[in-house]
Amino acid sequence: MYFRTKLKEGVITNNPILVQQLGMCATMAITTTLFNGVGMGLSVLIILTCCNVCVAAIRKIIPEEIRLAIFVVVIAGFVTIVDLLLQAFIPALSSALGVFIPLIVVNCIIIGRAEAFCQKNTVGASFVDGITQGLGYTCVLILMCLIRELLGSGRFGGGLIDITNGFRFTMDGTGAGIQLFPSDYGASILNLPFGGFLTLGVIFGTMQYALKKSAKKKEAAEQAAAAAAAAAAKEVDE
C-alpha cells in the first residue's frame, strides 16, 4: 500500500521532472532514441536508489555542517561506479550518453531527494523513494523519447528493438527500431535542441492542464459535499 502511494507520488503527483522541475539537462539532451532514454533513466534509478539507501543509513552519524559535501561525495562515488560499469559492459550506451553520465552527479534530483527525504527517513522508506522517484524520472524520459523519435524520424524503439530477424531486444544499441513511416517525412527538427525544449514544454503544459482539471474536479466534489453537509445541518436545525 505504501509502495503504491509512493509510486503514484513519484510518477504523477510529485514527479521529479514535471512537478519538482529538477534535472532538465539530460531530459532534453539525450532523449532522441528510446535506447538512450531507457539507459539514462535506469542509470539514474540505480544511482538514486543506492544514494538514498546510503544517505539514510549514515544519516545519524554525519555532522550537520558538512552534510551536503558528504552527499556529493557519496553521489559522485556511485556515479563513477555506474560510469565505469557502463564503459566496460554497455559501451554503446556509454558513448551515446557521453558526458551526461558523469553529470548525473550534479543532477538536482539526487541531491534534492537526499536533502529532502532521506535525511529524515528510514533506510526502507528511502529505498522505496529511490525506486519510485527513479521510475517517475524514467517514465518522463521514455515519453520524451517516444514523442521525439516518432515525430522526428518516424521510428519506434530505436537502438532497443530490432525486427530484421524477428522481434528481439538489442541491449547493445544496434537495433534499428520499427520504422512506422519513412524518416524523410519526419519533422527532424524535433531531434534538434529546439525539439527538446518544445517537447518538454508541451508535456509540461499538458501535465498542468491535467493537474488543474483534477484539482477542479476535487474542488467541485468538495464543494458539493460541503453544500450537502450544510443542507443536512440546516435540516437538523429546523
Binding site: I66, V73, V74, G77, L84, Q87, A88
Partner: peptide
Amino acid sequence: VLLLICAIVAGVLGVINELTYRRI
C-alpha cells in the same frame, strides 16, 4: 569525517576500476 568518507569512496572506486579497466 569528510576525509574518511572520501577515502572510503575512493577505495571502493579503486576496486571497481581494478575490475573494469582491462575490459575498457
